[in-house]
């Protein structure tokens, strides 16, 4: 009966226009519709599948502004049992290390955690580093980029998929798993699930509640900051080469010129 914590994050909808704020290059959360990150829906789904097969409890954990409650409610409406929401203005502009520290402290507030499931990379920050940093901080084994997860007693087996190929990993619980896009198809919250979610407990914590000094987090003490941001330039027109019997040579010349071959 594993106790599972799922990390979720509210992100700007990838369908809407996403911007960084002009003043400090942090995410302009007001400019776009906010949704539960799709990869987190898969993380929640995986936790629910494990729970449905083996029992246990699923706790959703999110670090984010007050508005992130919507994402948390969605995870709860899918079927998670309860939630921990760390919300504190001091967190504004935190880097991945600061965020991971906060998450690690919050995981510590949940009793008897056997497994932490995260998405492998959020669609906004895209650093893809939090699961690994978190595992280090918690002292848990990390099994990242999972496309298949099997729990057998106190052992976890993961099929890890990266560009290099498939790796079969095995570790003892407790552990941190990050899941990739192919892990599953997340369920839609049912009517009953949405209604039930309204009554599920959400514990809201500040960084002080976690025993962290506000000065340790936030933009001012972040280990990385965005210095400059510019929108992706529009794709330039391609170069047209007339083939007069020497098309191959011309293409090779171009590729050499671009230092591609």
């Amino acid at each position: 009966m594993p106790n599972i914590v799922v990390l979720v994050k509210q992100v700007p909808d990838t369908y809407s226009e996403r911007r960084l704020s002009d003043s400090d290059h942090t995410l302009d959360r007001d400019s776009a519709d906010a949704v539960l990150d799709e990869i987190n829906e898969r993380a929640v789904e995986e936790a629910l599948l494990i729970k449905e097969a083996q029992g246990g409890e699923v706790t959703v954990l999110s670090v984010g502004p007050d508005r992130a409650t919507e994402a948390i409610r969605k995870a709860l409406s899918m079927g998670a049992d309860k939630a921990v929401h760390v919300s504190d203005p001091a967190l504004h502009g935190s880097c991945v290390i600061q965020t991971s520290k906060v998450i690690a402290a919050a995981v510590g507030k949940v009793d008897g955690v056997d497994l932490v499931i995260a998405g492998n990379e959020a669609t906004d920050g895209r650093s893809g580093a939090v699961p690994a940093i978190l595992a280090e901080l918690l002292g848990y084994p990390q099994l990242t980029h999972a496309r298949k997860v099997v729990i057998e007693g106190t052992t976890i087996k993961v099929t890890r998929e990266t560009d290099e190929g498939l790796t079969h990993l095995e570790a003892s619980l407790p552990a941190v798993v990050s899941v990739g896009e192919k892990i599953n198809e997340p369920r839609y919250p049912s009517f009953k699930g949405i209604m039930a979610a309204k009554k599920k407990p959400v514990e809201t914590l500040t960084v002080a509640d976690l025993g962290i000094d506000a000065g340790e987090v936030g933009l001012a003490s972040a280990t990385s900051t965005v210095v400059e941001a510019a929108p992706k330039p529009p794709r330039a027109a391609g170069q047209k080469v007339e083939d007069e019997g020497d098309g191959g040579a011309k293409i090779a010349e171009y590729l050499v010129g671009q230092k591609l071959i």
């Binding site: 839609y188 919250p189 049912s190």
Partner: peptide, 19 residues
């Protein structure tokens, strides 16, 4: 709240359950 129009359904913005 769970009753939508076709336009709302096609907009992708409505929260629509499995069935």
């Amino acid at each position: 709240w769970n009753v939508h129009s076709v336009a709302e359904a096609l907009s992708g913005k409505a929260q629509i359950g499995p069935r």
